[in-house]
Design a protein around this nucleic acid. Structure first.
Lengths: 243, 243
DNA sequence: CGCCCACTTGAGTAAGATCAACCCGAGTGG
DNA sequence: CCACTCGGGTTGATCTTACTCAAGTGGGCG
């Protein structure tokens, strides 16, 4: 049993995953070849087109999955947070999008093959990871809806509410406030706007006393109004603990 | 062995899935509780919030997965075509989006539980279905990039090229032309524009001799120019046959 | 000190939405 | 058989949202 495997098991048992593991599951997790890694801000963990296949478990920090376009633009697909599982793509084939750190990131890395082998052993783990995959799909769908059918102001508000809900699932929201290391450029690439316009939307949200985002901290002043403005319904984010 | 199971097996063996099945796989497919169903245009197969859980295999026709918004707008997530597998969501929990037919649709339906049980039996089937899921993720991501970071003209062009590539995988593209039963309203809801603007983009694409879309048939006149204009790279659509 | 990066603000512009007609072909009911 | 409707498509005029360009600010850091 390695130290990494031990902290990995503890990670699985804590929020937001909250796994209640039986002894068979514990032993198969303990025998997994896990390594805990730390990445500084703005480091590429896997790039578009790469073949090497690891599974990442976000332990802490903010990640960023995105797609680079030929003209230099990019589209951010999602910002993985604690508990999110990255890299569950098809067994073969190159990676379709890039995964980087935004702020300091701590992850657990597992070779894909070993991970899939473990899933085959435990139907409970396997069904949990299917739920995770399905939730990630819902998140991407919500981002698509955001870009396609909501105004700039609503999009921005929606994103801040999504972060709040997700962070709340593991206790990183306190008094409707949370730390957010994103720049306005990153927000812009996530919701399909220019950074300049994001800036104006932030100002409006601040002046209307709905949310403020300054010095890396977001404070939600009026959750109800924000949810109404942005059509936010947190249903797509629910993910029951592994129990 | 039911008649439906027989035609279902034949469906799996034909393009685009092209499965080469061994006898164990054939017998587990044959014992599956499959029903073949036909739906007229604009019929809801499963709605947002429903709990009943079936897996759908698109046999022919055009489907439509979408999300309804409170204000009456909607965002179309994808148009499933032959070979696409729908409903692979988390084992529990309500359906997060709606699935309807656009034109006449023929599908195979399997109860989710039985289907997952079958996957546990065959690692080859299971890895194939993971690839399918992963490709669907890529498609949604591409739609998100489309909405977030491409112009109206590029979005429209991109969608037509995507259809062409997908249809080509099972021989429904001939001489760069294919049948497309979508209305301009549906195109608009897919790419996040108004139907009026879609109409103008269609006119421009037609006048520039790039694509035409009239009377339910799309004809691609200049694939190369279109791909350049819309930044289209078909990599995200590749899905190896099950062999 | 000076540079760089993120953020901020203003002015002008362009892309796409909105509003309002109108056409046309397929039903449909008198 | 004709009038009517209805759904899809087409076009023009106008308006709004968000982009572009440009010029700041201010903090952090070598």
């Amino acid at each position: 049993m390695t130290f990494s495997a031990q902290t990995f098991q503890f990670f699985l048992q804590s929020l937001p995953i909250g796994a209640e593991l039986n002894s068979a599951e514990i032993s198969s997790i303990q025998s997994l070849n896990v390594t805990q890694k730390y990445y500084p801000p703005h480091t590429l963990l896997t790039g578009q087109g790469e073949f090497e296949h690891r599974i990442f478990f976000m332990n802490s920090g903010w990640g960023c999955i995105y797609r680079d376009l030929a003209n230099g633009d990019r589209q951010i697909i999602d910002f993985p947070l604690r508990g999110d599982i990255m890299g569950m793509r098809s067994a073969e084939g190159p990676n379709y999008n890039s995964f980087a750190s935004v702020a300091d990131v701590s992850v657990f890395e597992v070779p894909a093959k070993a991970f899939y082998a473990m899933l085959e052993q435990s139907p409970r783990l396997s069904s949990y990871f299917m739920r995770v995959t399905s939730r990630q799909r819902s998140i991407i769908i919500e981002h698509l809806t955001n870009c396609g059918r909501r105004s700039a102001l609503a999009r921005t508000a929606h994103l801040f509410l999504e972060f709040a809900s997700r962070l709340d699932a593991f206790g990183s929201l306190s008094e409707n406030s949370y730390e957010c290391p994103l720049t306005q450029y990153e927000l812009a690439d996530a919701v399909g706007l220019t950074p300049i316009h994001i800036n104006r939307m932030l100002r409006e949200l601040r002046e209307r006393k709905l949310v403020s985002f300054r010095n890396g901290v977001v404070k939600i002043h009026d959750w109800y109004e924000l949810a109404a403005l942005s059509n936010f319904d947190p249903d797509y984010l629910v993910l029951k603990t592994l129990s």
